[in-house]
Amino acid sequence: MSEIVTETSNNGIQNFEPIVRYQKVSKSFGDTEVIKELDLDVAPAEKIGIIGPSGSGKTTLIRMLMTLEKPTSGTIEVDGELLWHKRVNGNLVPADEKHLRKVRSKVGMIFQQFNLFPHMTMLRNVTEAPIHVLGLSREEAEERAITMLEKVGLKDKLDQYPRQLSGGQQQRVAIARALVMNPKIMLFDEVTSALDPELVEEVLAVIKEIALEGNMTMLLVTHEMQFAREIADRIVFINGGTIIEQGPPEEIFENPKHERTQNFLRRFNKKN
């Protein structure tokens, strides 16, 4: 294990108050441990590209932050608050649904398969949560929704249903739907993997635009290396449920220190 490059020495950014902090987080499905005592600090507004071979635990890592998977052990903090635990008289106790909902209001997620609501129009897909979760009026929610749909370039598709749209358009609606909730942290899980090649670019362009606005913290699991290199402040390479190497994109892509990172990138480049 000594060969693994430790986190702080190679961080792009240092001495920050993290907005997300994984501490000794492990996750098992049955007998197989897919995340192993993983530590990761994310600075506010930082863009992190998470790369690694398939099955290495990337999805699981960010799903735990979205409260879709429960860590087997360890703690995750979001904006200074424990996510899966509450402190009662100095002891950590498992969080209840109310606490989870409070903390996860700061997090949003875009899925590989879009997961739009097929029985709702595009506009309703985007207004549903603002109205019923944030308690906005319909007018206000629609106003915000239309602003967001404009931002992703889809303001003329308001009354269409998901199945009437291309995959790229659907994914952009999914991005608008997440943005409208105004999360501080946004998670992207291989959001272009399910798209036809010619539709990838339009989705990446939207994400890039959000990234350039600057203030949103972003964790992006991706196989789009060029894209990751352009927008990420830091690249995290995961293999076998642990962080093998991390650092600024130039360093990881040009000059990976760890053998497994080198192998992964070499194989990856050959494939493409």
């Binding site: 879709l68 899925f111 739009l116 019923h132 979760v133």
Partner: peptide
């Protein structure tokens, strides 16, 4: 399952997810 997960990611409560996402479908 993705439908429920999308609901969770939008911070919907379980009953809201059932009523407005799952049941209509």
């Amino acid at each position: 399952k993705g439908q429920t997960e999308a609901g969770i990611a939008l911070n919907m409560s379980p009953s809201l997810i059932m009523k407005r996402i799952i049941l209509p479908q």
